[in-house]
């Protein structure tokens, strides 16, 4: 894959995606950090049990939108939603009766920099359950195994569940964070550049994992790497300067984009 060659990205053939249903609807969404507006009139419908990739140059608002989906932006001072709404399963997540904490239990998140807690691997995985008050040892054991298997980490760590999660390699740490996220059984998993700090082999493992996870979860991934978007996602949304430029099947975005800006970006001419 020579970076200089335009359209060097090999996009897999269209997959058998089966019937789709919309889970997240974003309507005319506007968002600001204080006086600086970060998102302008974003309209987007995301499919359930698919992988959707957000791509675009730095500062284009893709991470901001991602963090809006589980209201992590609430924690930043001075953020304002100035127009539009986000619905998940038809429920406005910024509605007055919605509890951000309950929302985050259903919409999990994996961060750019893997952030395992300085606890044992076991404790890391069950952290979310502990918080919800699950105390049954057998149930916790079961979930730990399931989640670690789900995150393709079980075989590597099953003998050292009670060692510190910080001692794992970078790729393992990130998969531990994914295991931690799926342990609370969310419906949606948001991934904020999950592989940006990983080496190619670890990246491949995580990507493989994403592919497996989409059987059961809706996955939204922000990535800087167009190859990655092409490899893992079913649909891709391209953002530029806070606006959604183009949203379509991944193959279309990469092979036959409608917008010249998209074409310029995916062919590596800027960004």
């Amino acid at each position: 894959m020579e970076p200089s060659a335009p359209l060097a990205i090999r996009v897999p053939a269209p997959r058998d995606v089966g019937a789709t249903s919309t889970i997240i609807e974003i309507e005319d969404f506007n968002f600001s950090y204080g006086a600086k507006q970060a998102l302008f009139d974003v309209n987007l419908k995301l499919d359930a049990r698919r992988v959707t990739a957000f791509i675009g140059p730095s500062g284009c608002g893709k991470t901001t939108l991602l963090r809006c989906l589980n209201r992590m932006n609430d924690l930043i001072d001075g953020t304002v939603i100035n127009g539009g709404r986000i619905r998940i399963h038809g429920v406005d997540i910024n509605g007055p009766e919605v509890d951000a904490i309950e929302l985050r239990k259903r919409v999990g998140m994996v961060f750019q920099k893997s952030n395992p807690f300085p606890k044992s691997i076991y404790e890391n995985v069950i952290y979310g359950l502990r918080i919800q008050g699950v105390g049954s040892k057998s149930r916790l054991d079961e979930i730990v195994e399931k989640s670690l298997r789900g995150a393709a980490l079980w075989d590597e760590v099953k003998d050292r569940l009670h060692e510190s999660g910080v001692g794992l390699s970078g790729g393992q740490q990130q998969r531990l964070c994914i295991a931690r996220a799926i342990a609370v059984q969310p419906e949606v998993i948001l991934m904020d550049e999950p592989c940006s700090a990983l080496d190619p082999i670890a990246t491949a493992k995580v990507e493989e994992l994403i592919h497996d996870l989409k059987k059961d979860y809706t996955i939204i991934i922000v990535t800087h790497s167009m190859q990655q978007a092409a490899r893992v996602s079913d649909k891709t949304a391209f953002f530029y300067l806070g606006r959604l430029v183009e949203y379509d099947d991944t193959q279309t975005i990469f092979m036959n984009p409608a917008n010249p800006q998209t074409e310029a970006y995916v062919s590596g001419r800027f960004g």
């Binding site: 998940i88 309950e102 789900g150």
Partner: peptide, 19 residues
Amino acid sequence: MSVPPPAKAPAFAIHRRRT
């Protein structure tokens, strides 16, 4: 690879009245 299925909640229950 077996993945635990997500909770099959009848509705997307993110409403909650806290004490």
